[in-house]
Design a protein around this nucleic acid. Structure first.
Lengths: 163, 163
DNA sequence: CCTTGACTATCCACAGTGGACAGTGTACTT
DNA sequence: AAGTACACTGTCCACTGTGGATAGTCAAGG
């Protein structure tokens, strides 16, 4: 949230939540409940500052100097430990209990969903490159493309072991 | 948990928790707190049956018929919506705020950690193939290998855009 | 017999999720 | 000009997930 605030500037809770969906929603989730709760936390800790009440009792939050420092500290610390959480792998792990025809259906379904996603990332990457966007934003999208390509390869190999 | 119980049979909470680490820990987490709470839920719903008190007031849980049915239902429904959650992408997304030399350090660090993981998956896959394990278990490990290979490719490309 | 450490369960505080609910502007229709 | 529908904004709640602290119990070894 501090990183988002540093990029998009003063914004209310709802706007921050939508921005998160757009900007990092491909690989991170931030629910609205979370945003409002954490804004209160960040305010209490002096990392953000709330402006006066606006329409619909909204308040615009902006990053304080201390908040910017905290953001850079977070950035510098690097990512925490990673756990892939991939529900598809769970289903596959236990797939020996599934009739082969049902499994083929599931695989077909995976395949089409992930093909769509791959095309989406390819298009998005091309657009961002055209628009000369932030190279690091492009990099995250490229990761999406590579990830989906890996999934495609995997599904292909997997289809071969299903009778 | 039902899937695990169906594969490993009657077991106490602690054992179920350790088995989860071993069997699906590469792409799923199941904390001990969760295991005990959910065992109570599953028992209440009639999906598992608890044996008499054993040593250290442990109880062995086994899958009931109804639990097995619930497991197959879950399996048949296929995986729920997927969200990749990849902390490294968050750091990279905001990396324009980082001094290039610090970024290079981070990338080096990613690279070595993921190379280690890739080697781990390669070895594990070879071992499982040798042991003629369940093809679906092998498939999940192969996914790990492909994923790590994609990460390696990505980090390689990324290193080129850092000054 | 005592100590140590592993095994097993419980509990707690906090974070994350998803949906319901409610008040308030805005834009469109009549 | 009034009314209506819808989008914007915030709050709340119940449930699930996370990580660590605590504590009783058994087994092995000195």
């Amino acid at each position: 949230m501090l990183g988002l605030l540093s990029q998009i500037g003063p914004i209310n809770g709802n706007g921050l939540s939508s921005s998160a969906d757009v900007l990092i929603g491909d690989y991170w989730t931030l629910t609205r409940s979370q945003v409002y709760r954490e804004l209160q936390n960040l305010e209490r800790r002096g990392f953000v500052h709330a402006g006066p009440l606006g329409p619909r009792s909204s308040r615009e939050f902006s990053l304080t100097e201390s908040g910017r420092a905290a953001f850079h500290e977070w950035l510098d610390a690097g990512p925490a430990g990673e756990v892939i959480r991939f529900p598809m792998l769970l289903t596959i792990r236990f797939a020996s209990g599934l009739p082969p025809e049902r499994l083929r259906d599931l695989l077909d379904d995976f395949e089409s969903r992930h093909r769509a996603k791959r095309e989406f990332y390819e298009q998005l990457e091309a657009d961002l490159v055209d628009a000369q966007s932030d190279p690091f934003e492009i990099a995250t999208v490229r990761f999406g493309r590579l990830f989906e390509a890996a999934v495609a390869t995997w599904l292909d190999e997997l289809a071969n072991i299903v009778p």
